[in-house]
Design a protein around this nucleic acid. Structure first.
Lengths: 352, 352
DNA sequence: CTGAAAGCGCTTACAG
DNA sequence: CTGAAAGCGCTTACAG
């Protein structure tokens, strides 16, 4: 079924059929209805590639999930597929809301996972091959994000989550970030409010913007409350459970262990739980713990984890809207939007 | 940059450029290389819609996630986006592996979420508008799946997860199912092996194929071991946490409570944990529990949940391969493929 | 081995 | 208000 067939059926030209489909004014209601009826009856759907070729947009947004592990082989070469990026609730919440919001505005979503620098070719092909009208990148490290500007020409519309542009006039894109700094600040401030003075941190991946900003929040709140920083209280993690386990063991090993620890994400907090349990200590009686992300699991830990909720769906909705706005305007909207976090108080923190 | 530009640059015709791109034989290596070099140098990517229009495939697979709630408003009208289908690890693991496998074979993925019967229009549009070469549906109830055959003409290639066709010669599609029956059978058999005789079940959604098959496995193993079935031991759930909570309360309320319960998925097991804790009982000392799905959370419950692992990535890989095979052959492969489960033993079951 | 040309199914100035 | 026609960027018989 082509527009030509509908035209013949109704007794008008393809031009008229096209005008009805595209809501041109000045079509007499009677004609419009006849055409619409035939379209309905025969389940006619215009050929999208043909429309695209004739100059229309494809109404598709790209979603590129970065899951680049430098030191190792790409994830998908591992034996098990079960622990990939997608199992990470962090992505799932964003992905879901992004698809949803785009669908509402009549856009489709093309998803790809980028496992290594070479895979950026997939994103480039999607843009350059005119599969998508715009695309968003999420999950990358600062260096990886910078690379995007080399791979994707500035005449394509892009969005990035978790990257703070140095110069919005040069790095043009829709940037939507969660307010990591404020979230970390509030998290540690909460521990201080509970009476904690010796507060440790297991940092996130410091090659990601969020890792750096959360650490900065931690440092700043301590200095604001005149608590002297102790380098022994700062251990480096990388957002992975194992690094939380190791980090907590390191914090527990010292002669003067912290009474509370800020884990820069929930996965590391899970590792920290394990370390604390294995050391025969109790949460929150011996040590209080606060996480970041409010992943699904955090609520089911025992005790349930106090954590910083990241409104990923809000980030996703903003991102979809701003990308679609860019497409409508025909030019990249350049903006750096910040979304606030909120603390979810559960049982893993104790008042001293 | 169009093929015409590359042609001019190299000094050949567009036909030749096209032949190089499409790996035609009989191109002299020198010509091939010159063309390839220009393509590389100018980052030329052929216009996908134009290729599609000229008769090639779009190399895109549709992924339709069904999340239809009959009684209520569609999920996305709720205030919070956080608990949608995508947060469900069940989907996430499939989705990830499916994207991954398709990407490996040089296919892109178009995802949409279907919240109500009207949303099937999104899937229809994707097929009829030639956005995709094939598409898979997951997460639906038996009735919803049947509707697909009305909405999508049989000349399009489709796949369905969790639907047992009545007649493969009439309902042509790639069906990949986990072996729910065998999984349930093994789960309950394991409880019997541990010495349990009075075994309850909180069923899944019985409007889904998996719900029916898991219940059947439960019944059959009991009869095979000559344990008389007790209708009081069978309570209906719907795969949602709350129904596990209610179901367990119902099982605990009776005069003669079960020593073990088979929860037909992990979400309901979580609800059951809560009911048991609130009743002041202990898992596994007072009651043993086994789940189904092996979701990420199951491992972090206390005690960690014994459950049936569903190899979703294997299902996804099979589905992607069979869909792509269908596309290559130019006709729907009709097959009903079963994937086996495996029990993951953790601390929630006790030997009597 | 290779170019000129038709054709894929649309949209949209253009002319009336 | 509406039709004929050009053009979007490819691929692929066709002819040589």
């Amino acid at each position: 079924m082509r527009s030509k067939d509908i035209a013949k059926l109704v007794g008008v030209s393809r031009s008229t059929v096209s005008r009805v489909i595209n809501n041109y004014p000045d079509i007499p209601p009677a004609t419009r209805e006849k055409v619409l009826k035939a379209i309905e009856e025969y389940n006619y759907v215009p050929n999208v590639p043909a429309r695209r070729l004739a100059g229309m947009k494809s109404r598709t947004l790209g979603l590129f999930l970065l899951d680049i592990i430098e030191e190792e082989k790409p994830h998908h070469l591992k034996i098990s597929n079960e622990n990939l990026v997608y199992n990470n609730n962090f992505f799932a919440a964003f992905t879901n809301a992004f698809i949803d919001q785009a669908n509402k505005k009549d856009y489709y979503i093309l998803v790809s996972i980028i496992y290594n620098m070479e895979d950026f070719k997939k994103a480039q092909d999607a843009f350059y091959g005119k599969r998508i009208d715009a695309g968003v990148f999420i999950g990358g490290k600062t260096q990886e994000y910078k690379y995007i500007f080399n791979v994707i020409q500035p005449d394509y519309i892009i969005g990035i989550v978790d990257f703070e542009p140095e110069d919005l006039s040069r790095q043009k894109a829709v940037f939507v970030n969660m307010n990591d700094y404020e979230g970390a600040f509030k998290a540690v401030e909460y521990l201080i409010t509970l009476g904690h003075r010796r507060i440790g941190i297991i940092t996130g991946d410091l090659s990601k913007g969020s890792g750096v900003r959360r650490l900065r929040g931690y440092k700043d709140v301590l200095s604001q409350y005149n608590l002297e920083p102790d380098p022994k209280m700062i251990v480096c993690g990388n957002y992975v459970e194992e690094s939380g386990f190791n980090g907590m063991n390191q914090l527990l090993a010292g002669p003067h262990r912290p009474t509370a620890v800020f884990c820069c994400n929930d996965s590391m907090a899970i590792g920290a739980y394990r370390a604390i349990n294995e050391a025969g200590l109790n949460i929150p009686n011996d040590i209080s713990l606060i996480g970041f992300d409010n992943t699904q699991v955090s609520e089911y830990l025992s005790p349930p984890l106090t954590t910083v909720h990241v409104p990923l769906s809000e980030i996703a909705v903003n991102m979809a809207d701003l990308l679609i706005e860019s497409i409508a305007k025909g030019k990249q909207v350049a903006i750096n939007k910040l979304v606030d976090t909120v603390i979810v108080k559960r049982a893993s923190c104790k008042k001293l």
